[in-house]
Amino acid sequence: MLLENKFYRVVSVEKRENLSAVYSIDILPECEVYKGHFPGNPVCPGVFNIETIKECSMLLCGKPLRIAGVKQCRFTAISTPEKTPRAQVELLLTPSETGYTVTASIYDSQLRYVEFKGNLIYD
């Protein structure tokens, strides 16, 4: 995985019915990306949140997945390793012919950061 244990670390998982779960993650402030995003002003890249959703989906279904399409992904607040040290990644995977339709959000006790709906296919 590209970002597991580099950008985030899974702390716990709460599995629900079917392919639905909430992953609690720590956002790791020492991640190298903050050197460049942005120098002196660390902000979590929005697209890293998308990759995090993909990787948690892979953990949940136990298969390698690729993002074939993103129907809609909204970034509703800016997260930083300082203000957002821990977040929840909530996932719902609905099987499709080639993989899963994934509906996901990332939030903490204060804010919602990402609302995602996309099409992940088996790799």
Binding site: F38, I67, A68, G69, V70, K71, Q72, C73, F75
Partner: peptide
């Protein structure tokens, strides 16, 4: 400094 607000209809 720009931030992504929304991605819509991405296809890879």
């Amino acid at each position: 400094l720009g931030y992504i607000g929304e991605v819509k209809g991405f296809q890879c």
